[in-house]
Each structure stands twice: as C-alpha cells, then as structure tokens.
C-alpha cells in the first residue's frame, strides 16, 4: 500500500502543507494554533488503538492500554483546551464598530 517513495511523497507534501498553513499567521493566533496542532496530533490515539488491537501478550496489552489512555488524553484534552482558548476570539458584540480598525 505504501511503498518507500509514495510515503516519502506524502511526508513531503504534508510537511509543505503544514508549513504553508502557518506561514502567514498573525502573532495573535500563535498560542491557540499551538494548542490546535497539539489536538491534531491526538490522531496518535488511532495508532494506539491499532497497537492495542494487535496486542497478544499481557505485556503488550499493558503498553497498548497505556498508549490508548495517553492518546485519548491528548485528543480530548487538546480539543477542550483549544476550544476554550478560541472562545475568547468570539466577538461578543457582533457588528460593533471597532473604531479605526480598517
């Protein structure tokens, strides 16, 4: 499914995508973005689930279980924290004139 060069292409294009998305970001969003990208690598949960799903010995199951716990914590915690941070960016008074902000 994924031979060497195909994977390399995916790595390259994904890295380029990540770089481009962030490249022109205003300073005000640095911290929420850090938290948001922290949530996105919570996809590690999927990998941990697969690892636990393939575990055979009790020892492997222990490691897999801990991995899923940690991955779930990453995903859920990352989501909650990011959402709470971005809530601050909600304009509380829509349509409010913000002076010379143009």
């Amino acid at each position: 499914m994924l031979d060497g060069f195909l994977a390399l292409y995916i790595f390259m294009l994904a890295a380029f995508t990540g770089y481009e998305i962030i490249a022109r970001v205003p300073v005000i969003l640095h911290t929420p973005l850090m938290s948001g990208s922290n949530f996105i690598h919570g996809i590690v949960l999927v990998g941990a689930m697969i690892a636990l799903g393939h575990a055979r010995t009790p020892f492997e199951m222990c490691i897999g279980f801990v991995g899923v716990l940690l991955g779930a914590g990453n995903a859920a915690g990352g989501y909650v924290v990011t959402e709470r941070m971005l809530e601050m960016f909600k304009t509380s008074k829509p349509g409010k004139d913000s002076g010379g902000a143009k």
């Binding site: 790595f11 890295a15 990540g18 770089y19 990208s37 996105i40 690598h41 996809i43 590690v44």
Partner: peptide
C-alpha cells in the same frame, strides 16, 4: 496529521 503538525 503528524507531518502537518511537525512542520507547522
């Protein structure tokens, strides 16, 4: 997802 976050 990992690579995008790695680069970003």
């Amino acid at each position: 997802a990992g690579m995008v976050v790695g680069a970003a």
